[in-house]
Amino acid sequence: MTTRGIGPANDPGPSVPSGRGSRALGGRGVLVSSASTVLFFAIIAIVVVLAPGSGVVAERFFSPPHLWQSLVGSEGSPSVLRAFLLNVEIFAVAEVFILILALVIAVVRGIPGPVFFPFRLVAVAYTDLFRGVPLILVLYMIGFGVPGLGLRFISYLPDVTYGVISLILVYSAYVAEVYRAGIESVHESQNAAARSLGLTRWQSLRFVVLPQAIRRVIPPLLNDFIGLQKDTALVSVLGSIEAARAAQIYSASEFNYASYVVAAFLFVLITIPLARFTDRLIARDKRRREAGALA
């Protein structure tokens, strides 16, 4: 045991789990966790290396010249890195619209009163429909259907625009449900307090309910955005050359799959910060709740 005080003075011994994470591990704990980690990865490495095709796989997926070549691009194939910027762009644009559209849907779904029944109906139908249909089918229907209509302003947009629209449509349905869960988690007494001060329904929603609801759903929202970052790759089915498509072009011309590894690496690279950020927010919320419970 280290001298760091991690439990009460009469802590019965090191076998009592007194916390999580490396800080809570004693000297023996670090040793055990290191050993088990090494062993775990060693077994995987041995299995992979001893596999009959391991040499071929190493050449096809991890050959350094190909990794580099696909990253920066060559005469016959686009740079995966540059193509990846399109993914980032798609994500950034779609995210903004999703946050807004989903909020509108969630709010509309919560408006009481018989007059608003058709609005609620539309909101419910929307979320049911777009959560139910696979994204790739929405992409095909929007990407090939809307141009087919031959309408003046909306049928002759770049392919990638239809991809972004599809992502917005599908993800807004999910995010609307996240917002709705947040709105419903705010106790009715908060709304009652606001209304009894003379605030209108909208003012209560805007100043009292939504700020609390949104704060609570930030972690699940970020989680959905991690999913969105990855799904930007599906936009390639409409012909846009984003990272996954660029990797495919490379592999088709060079007969080497290193480009896929590069694309995967880039996706992971931008997802990890968002994932860690989400973890931190969740941990912070948990601390706050615990502090609140003590007060």
Binding site: S189, S196, L197
Partner: peptide, 17 residues
Amino acid sequence: NRIRRRIGIVYQSFNLF
């Protein structure tokens, strides 16, 4: 809303924001 402006109410559970 107009009526509620003239009537203040305080609840058992405070209900501060």
